[in-house]
């Protein structure tokens, strides 16, 4: 595919200079999976240390989930697995109505993720590569909306929800999260660097309209970022706690709302609470692997089809 460089596009911050730009276009077919260099033992050591530090609390919650309430309160806390993991998991699953909560949350988080990623990519692309009036002002507005502290908006949001009679309904937690300023900003910053303007121009020359450009050029180029954004959004939506707790009840809960009902008693049962927390986290780890695969593999797959 020939890249027609009709006019000097605004120089991306990314491209370091003239000669690279030609290479950059040539590389279009490279799309090499992974990185450019093999890691040495030092790399593995450092990564292993960080990975260990990262997963310890999660692993510990599994250890805690495998003990009884009494054992967890003992003078020396347990440092290895006990025998009650499945008992606690079962109790958590049943007490918290987790089956329904999981289905609800998968629906909520997936809807939010798809719409956030889609709309953020479209808007991010427009802000990164298209020209239109009031672009900079609108972009600043997007960033401005990220700066509103969220803990108080619950009150007016519930006013609206009460007016709409949406309390206890899932749309009350889905609709307010359908777009994200964070996502728009993230996509813009990514595409400014990762999407060569020549590719868009070339597609235009070939007669593509904007939607075709988006489909055949922008989406392929944005794929790693879309995967990352999808991952982060999914986790955010999955773990969203305060607002769903206000808006929903245990009868029709998301996972986090369901978990607030666990381990009841004057002294909450930590074993069951941790079992619930563990169950609530597992789907995320699965999602990580699914999204994670999308991040690998470079950006230019399919960019030439347009």
């Amino acid at each position: 595919m020939a890249v027609v460089n009709t006019q000097p596009a605004p120089q991306d911050a990314a491209t370091a200079g003239g000669p690279e730009r030609g290479r950059r276009a040539r590389r279009a077919k490279a799309g090499a999976a992974g990185g450019h260099l093999h890691g040495g033992w030092l790399t593995y050591t450092i990564l292993a240390v960080f990975a260990l530090g990262s997963i310890v609390p999660l692993v510990y919650s599994a250890i805690a989930a495998s003990h009884s309430k009494a054992r967890l309160s003992e003078a020396t806390p347990p440092f290895w697995f006990g025998g009650r993991l499945f008992t606690n998991l079962e109790r958590a699953w049943e007490d918290a109505n987790l089956g329904k909560a999981m289905i609800n949350t998968i629906f909520v988080a997936s809807t939010i993720t798809v719409s956030t990623v889609l709309f953020a990519t479209l808007a991010g692309f427009a802000f990164a590569k298209l020209r239109f009036r009031a672009k900079n002002v609108l972009m600043l507005l997007v960033i401005g909306t990220m700066m509103v502290p969220p803990q108080l908006t619950v009150v007016p949001m519930f006013m609206a929800v009460a007016e709409l009679e949406w309390s206890n309904h899932l749309q009350a937690v889905i609709l307010p999260m359908m777009v994200s300023a964070f996502g728009v900003f993230f996509m813009r910053q990514y595409l400014v660097q990762a999407l060569p303007t020549e590719l868009i121009e070339a597609a235009r020359v070939d007669g593509s309209n904007s939607l075709r450009v988006v489909w055949h050029v922008v989406f392929p180029a944005a794929r790693p970022a879309m995967a990352v954004l999808g991952m982060l959004t999914f986790v955010l939506a999955w773990n969203e706690f305060f607002w769903p707790m206000i808006a929903l009840t245990q009868q029709n809960p998301t996972v986090q709302v369901a978990l607030t009902g666990l381990g009841q008693g004057y002294v909450p049962d930590q074993g069951v609470i941790m079992a619930g927390a563990l169950l609530g986290t597992l789907p995320l780890l699965i999602a990580f692997v699914l999204f994670g695969k999308q991040i690998v593999g470079g950006i230019m797959h399919g960019a030439l089809k347009g």
């Binding site: 992974g34 990185g35 450019h36 260099l37 093999h38 890691g39 790399t43 593995y44 990564l47 960080f50 990975a51 260990l52 990262s54 997963i55 609390p57 999660l58 510990y60 919650s61 805690a64 991952m231 982060l232 986790v235 999955w238 773990n239 706690f241 978990l259 609470i273 941790m274 927390a277 563990l278 609530g280 986290t281 995320l284 780890l285 990580f288 692997v289 994670g292 695969k293 991040i295 690998v296």
Partner: peptide, 25 residues
């Protein structure tokens, strides 16, 4: 992580687990 690595998926998932780990844990 951008190097070619064995088990890179594991490392990627591992370093993101704190973001997913529940507040209670």
């Amino acid at each position: 992580l951008n190097y070619r690595l064995r088990g890179s998926m594991f490392f990627r998932v591992a370093i993101l687990t704190p973001y997913a780990t529940s507040i209670a844990a």
